[in-house]
Amino acid sequence: MEQVLRVEQRDGWRKLVLNRPDKLNAFNEALHQALRAALEDAATAADCRAVLLTGEGRGFCAGQDLGDRRPGEGPPPDLGNTLERFYNPLIRQIRSLPKPVVCAVNGVAAGAGANIAIACDIVLAAQSARFIQSFSKIALVPDSGGTWLLPRLIGEARARALMLTAEPLPASTAAEWGMIWKAVEDDRLTLEAENLAARLAAQSTAGLARIKRALDAGATQSLDAQLDTERDLQREAGAAPDYAEGVRAFLEKRAPRFG
Rank of each mutant, 00 (worst) to 15 (best):
A45M: 05
R257F: 00
A109P: 00
L39D: 04
A159T: 05
E194W: 08
V105I: 11
L196A: 04
W181D: 10
L169K: 00
Q133A: 12
N19T: 05
T173D: 13
A43P: 08
L90I: 04
D121V: 00
P100F: 02
Y243C: 12
R199L: 12
L208Y: 05
L149N: 04
R20G: 05
Q226E: 14
E56I: 00
G63D: 00
A193T: 09
L140A: 13
L83P: 00
A112H: 06
G155V: 03
I138L: 07
P98R: 02
A129S: 15
P100E: 01
D78F: 08
E167V: 11
G12L: 06
L150V: 15
G146T: 05
L90R: 01
E252R: 12
R6P: 01
M1E: 13
V4W: 06
P170E: 06
Q127C: 11
A117E: 01
Q33T: 08
Q133V: 00
A112G: 14
R69A: 12
W13N: 00
V51P: 05
V247C: 11
K23G: 00
V105D: 02
M1S: 14
Q33C: 09
D232F: 01
L97A: 04
T205M: 09
E176F: 06
G107D: 04
A34R: 11
G113D: 02
V4H: 01
A161M: 10
A217W: 08
A174N: 01
G207E: 09
A159L: 11
L83W: 12
A129F: 08
P241W: 09
T190N: 10
G59T: 03
E194A: 12
D65F: 11
S222Q: 08
L97G: 04
F60I: 04
L189P: 03
E230V: 15
I154L: 05
G55E: 09
Q64T: 08
A43L: 12
N195Y: 10
Q226T: 13
L24G: 08
A43C: 08
C61K: 02
A125C: 07
G207T: 13
P77Q: 09
R49D: 11
R231Q: 15
L200I: 11
V102I: 15
Q3S: 14
L90T: 01
E156M: 14
P71S: 03
V4I: 10
R58C: 01
M179A: 14
A125L: 02
A34M: 06
G145Y: 01
F86C: 03
A209Y: 13
P151H: 08
A126E: 02
L189Y: 10
G107F: 07
G218K: 03
